[in-house]
């Protein structure tokens, strides 16, 4: 993904601004524009979109002229692992419940670190953290997080306090 431009950072940023600004401009086409005196919902965003595209063009041109530093190495793996862990939390929360979702979040995200290994002490810490979250957030602060979720709901017969 290395660009052969003098300032690859400026080029990439410029492309992002142009794409984002262009997308917004296109979206505002379906909103009523109104006049400067009576602005419709499309007026302010369309002006901003034009400004953003202009900034993008300046950045793009500058990227081809002015020498800049190359884009540093992207940490795709840790980034993907961290994102995946949080997304898993979101997916599992209502289905498998808070306890499973938290375990997935912590284990997957921790695997992004070079220090990650299966360690009984760390597992005890994980259980403690889950217990703390259930007690503090659900029982204490009353955040409506499902402890068991729809998949594990039958278990509530055995342990009604988990409901």
């Amino acid at each position: 993904m290395q660009l052969r431009a003098a300032g690859p950072k400026d080029v990439w940023a410029g492309l992002i601004y142009i794409a984002f600004g262009g997308g917004v401009f296109w979206a505002t086409l379906s909103y009523r524009l109104g006049t400067a005196g009576r602005m419709g919902p499309g007026y302010f965003p369309r002006v901003l979109a034009l400004i953003l595209v202009t900034i993008g063009v300046i950045s793009l041109v500058r990227g081809f002229i002015v020498r800049g530093t190359p884009v540093g190495e992207m940490a795709w793996k840790p980034l993907a692992t961290i994102s995946l862990s949080a997304a898993l939390f979101g997916l599992l929360l209502e289905r498998a419940g808070l306890m499973v979702a938290l375990a997935a979040l912590v284990l997957v995200s921790a695997s992004a670190s070079k220090e990650f290994r299966w360690d009984p002490k760390a597992l005890v810490g994980l259980v403690g953290l889950i217990a703390f979250c259930v007690l503090a957030f659900v029982k204490g602060l009353g955040v409506p997080l499902p402890i068991l979720g729809s998949w594990l709901e039958p278990l509530a017969v055995m342990a009604p306090w988990l409901r």
Partner: peptide
């Protein structure tokens, strides 16, 4: 991450 996820959900 745990506190971010629970905080954002709430």
């Amino acid at each position: 991450l745990v506190f971010c996820a629970i905080g954002v959900f709430s």
